[in-house]
Simulated scan of single mutants.
Amino acid sequence: MACVFCEIVAGTAPAIRVYEDDDFLGILDIRPFTRGHTLVVPKRHSVDLTDTPADTLAGMLAVGQRIAQATRASQLGATGNNIAINDGKSAMQTVFHIHLHVIPRRDGDKLSFAKGMLLRRDPDREGTGRILREALSQLDTTG
């Protein structure tokens, strides 16, 4: 079975890229809980926490931290973020290529977050991607 994240890394499947370096790719979740919900994907395939090297996990978290900073510094207006790895089918992992979720949160957003869990869409994915890329670029020049 083909891995959609490996296809995205290879450039043969579409995704809105917000971050990329030699080892990791940051892409907008196709079914976001909130606007700016980003997935940090290692370019080297591993399935879950049982077969992912510790340095890969650390690298995913470092990239996730930068993206979280960008959600706060941008017009997305996050005041916090949820960071999560769904490890295995019983933990709701649906794509079996390890990845880190960065989910922007805002003060008082419990109702809209719950709605986002049901609807899971962003009507302006291209705009959201642009916002995050610009914010990451600004962080790179100031931090």
Rank of each mutant, 00 (worst) to 15 (best):
D55M: 04
T56N: 15
G80M: 00
R121Y: 04
E134Y: 01
I131Y: 05
M60I: 09
A68N: 06
R125W: 01
L132F: 01
L132W: 01
A62Y: 09
S46D: 01
P104S: 04
I85G: 13
Y19H: 10
A114V: 12
L111M: 06
Q75F: 06
R130C: 03
L139A: 03
R31Y: 12
A13E: 10
H99E: 04
S90A: 14
T38C: 11
A13M: 08
F5P: 13
T71P: 15
P53H: 08
K115S: 14
P42W: 10
D140C: 08
T56Y: 14
D107K: 09
I98L: 13
T34Q: 11
T141F: 00
P32Y: 01
D23W: 03
R35K: 15
V47M: 06
H45G: 04
H97L: 12
A58W: 11
V4L: 12
F96W: 03
A70H: 12
R17N: 11
G108Y: 02
M60T: 11
E126G: 01
S74C: 07
I30H: 06
I103D: 07
A84P: 05
L61R: 13
G11F: 11
A135D: 00
H101C: 07
T12V: 06
P42A: 02
T141R: 10
D22Y: 07
T56Q: 10
L28Q: 09
D29H: 02
E7C: 00
H45L: 12
A70P: 07
I30L: 14
I16R: 09
A91E: 06
F113E: 02
H37E: 08
V40M: 05
G59F: 00
V9T: 14
H37N: 15
L25W: 11
R35I: 10
A15L: 07
G26M: 11
L136R: 04
R121L: 11
G64V: 04
K115E: 15
Q69G: 12
G129T: 02
K89L: 06
A58S: 11
A84W: 01
G116F: 04
R66F: 04
T94G: 12
P123W: 00
A78C: 00
R17A: 07
V63C: 08
D124E: 09
F96P: 07
H45N: 12
L61I: 09
D23V: 09
I85Q: 14
P32A: 05
L61T: 15
G26Q: 00
D23F: 08
